[in-house]
Design a binder for these strands. Structure first.
Lengths: 354, 354
DNA sequence: CTGCATTCCGCAAACGATTGCGTAAATCGG
DNA sequence: CCGATTTACGCAATCGTTTGCGGAATGCAG
């Protein structure tokens, strides 16, 4: 390994002390050194190809310009744009990010948390969604700046950013009701994940507020947030024998799987059953029928998280709101249509009148 | 910030020197300390909640147990499984990865390379595909272990891993020819990216070897590897007025875009024009028609890269093959069908005979 | 001219872990 | 028992950068 150029080398070349070199190369402290000396030091640093050793500086300052990001799984297409949002804010400031995949396993999550802390990360954006999670709260209490994305940690003052899940569920339910649907099945996500739980709770709450008859609602709970589970739950609902004209999926993948599951039984979406998703993940516009869904912020969510973390790292917390709720957007596409039973009832109504 | 527990704290508690604590906690060096002292030290370390300071150790040893990974863009769905493959090998060994997105911009790539080096990464997996890239070669020459994925660096001894692009293109061309296609258009990727260039070169080479008439072939070059460009190029080909019955896309997204572009002109895939992709990215099985494509390794490519990098870091290169070619797989789905003109020619042939 | 304040640097300690070297004690072999 | 070898540690320097403090030089005001 070629020996790296150090401040000592520059000091020897210019004929000043290493502390002077350090100060001259610092944008703020360079004002305490005469401009002529600063110029000579900077020129020599560039000529010698000096690159700061963040390890050495980090040991002295306890700051590494590195941030940890914890997510469930990078192959989940929701997360890469979030990561780009985080990076988009931090990278121009010279930060690097260490990304770890927790796979929504508690033990792994705690282990990876230590991986990050051992490397002296300056802060953590915690976007993993497992509910039971004691360690991150302790770490934050110990003073490491932490922001959570998609979740609030109970009994903790960690600032958090969440989507307006309730508004999303409300928008979907209202849309389905406007189309005449009343017999609606909710494909809920795993209840040990925060989004699974939040969206199910919102479904119950909003359905009651909108005056939907509990007896006309059904819940199927998926074990994973993927297409296979979506298909499995849809078929489970069909086997249950209770009628439904719409499925409200807790995320897009459950919804897409449900459409496949219905199709396997000769049931067509949206002609026979309308289906809605949540998240508006990428590639939806290539998949038929185009999915009606709730669009959550991704890139901007990441940006927001990074901005809040920077504030937290700079100010120690005084200025950072505890809760940030990101608005969602209702996206109507092809997968929802007028309730077929409503049309049927109208004809019968008409017949009855005759 | 709560003060961290150091080796000095343990030494004071146990009544030994800090160097003894260091040796006792090292799996290899602990054999030079009596087992009873080792036990006491380990028990105290656990009781006090000691966590190693990788920054301090890294300054002394010049090793951080951190690896840099350079990719074009994490939102490109090909890369997350690659990253999981890399992580799958490194994480169990205690490594963390710093991922940077180069956006296929040379200046940005060089800047991010320094971000990684300043943090003392032990090695780099370089999976960015921009062709012109002088700095990574110099860094490798300076002694930093580097593996490239998807690309060979010219005039460099950096070990590289590539897909068998030629076998992929050959498989697609052969499949189209078996279906009777002769008038084939290639949607090439950007020529400043290695995959764009390799696949175009392979197209020319294999077409010649298979005896395809150059006059029946067409090339449209995309500026980006995305759906919009795929659609744009397909429409460009249509406007050109020269007939084609098949499109061989340089990647899946170009192919999907081409299908949309054809559809906008009332041309149906595969009934009127067959379309093939490359990569077999996720979600293809949800998109109709299901795309015929070349499946490249992703997770396993990442694993291979990480394994080679570990070897390189351990051995200094003696044992690591310069070139590793990963086999590809031909995946036939719905987007390719018998050439319509071939059927037409047969009927005419029959008429001619009468 | 003298005293005080400001500026510009050099000195040296600190950060936490590692490791080469040296010494004392224990063990082994003749 | 004695000399040689081995074992088990403690000492202190190292890694590269930062920063509090102090001294020397300079400038300003009375």
């Amino acid at each position: 390994m070629k020996r790296r150029v150090t401040l000592k080398d520059i000091a020897a070349e210019v004929g000043v002390h290493v502390s002077t070199v350090s100060r001259a190369l610092d944008p703020v402290l360079s004002s305490t050194i005469t401009p002529e000396v600063v110029s000579r030091i900077r020129a020599t640093a560039e000529q010698l190809g000096y690159r700061p050793n963040r390890i050495a500086a980090g040991l002295r300052t306890n700051r590494t310009m590195t941030v940890g990001v914890m997510i469930p799984d990078i192959t989940n297409v929701i997360f890469p744009p979030i990561l780009r949002g985080i990076e988009g804010v931090l990278e121009p400031l010279g930060y690097a990010t260490i990304i770890v995949n927790t796979d929504s396993e508690a033990e792994r999550e705690n282990r990876l948390l230590n991986v990050l802390r051992d490397r002296g990360v300056d802060g953590i954006v915690h976007a993993a969604v497992l509910l039971s999670d004691p360690c991150i709260a302790h770490v934050a209490e110990d003073g490491l700046p932490v922001i959570t994305l998609n979740r609030r940690i109970e009994n903790s003052r960690i600032p958090y950013i969440i989507n307006d899940e309730e508004a999303g569920i409300r928008g979907m339910l209202q849309h389905l009701m406007d189309l005449g649907h009343r017999q609606i099945a909710h494909l809920a996500g795993p209840q040990e994940l925060s989004t699974g739980q939040l969206r199910l709770a919102a479904f119950h709450k909003v359905a009651a507020e909108l005056g939907l008859d509990r007896d006309e609602l059904q819940i199927a709970e998926a074990r994973r947030f993927d297409e296979a589970e979506g298909s499995h739950c849809a078929q489970q609902l069909l086997r249950g024998g209770r009628p439904f004209t719409a499925i409200l999926g807790a995320n897009d993948r459950l919804a897409l799987g449900a459409i496949e599951g219905l199709r396997a039984h000769g049931i067509s979406c949206p002609e026979d059953v309308s289906v809605t998703g949540f998240n508006d993940m990428c590639f939806l516009d290539l998949i038929r029928p185009r999915l009606t869904t709730v669009r959550i912020q991704k890139y901007d969510a990441g940006r927001t998280a990074a901005q809040l973390l920077l504030k937290l790292m700079a100010s120690g917390g005084g200025d950072v709101p505890l809760e940030t709720v990101l608005p969602v957007e209702i996206v109507i596409r092809e997968s929802t249509a007028r309730c077929p039973e409503l049309d049927h009832r109208r004809r019968r109504g008409g017949l009855a009148r005759i």
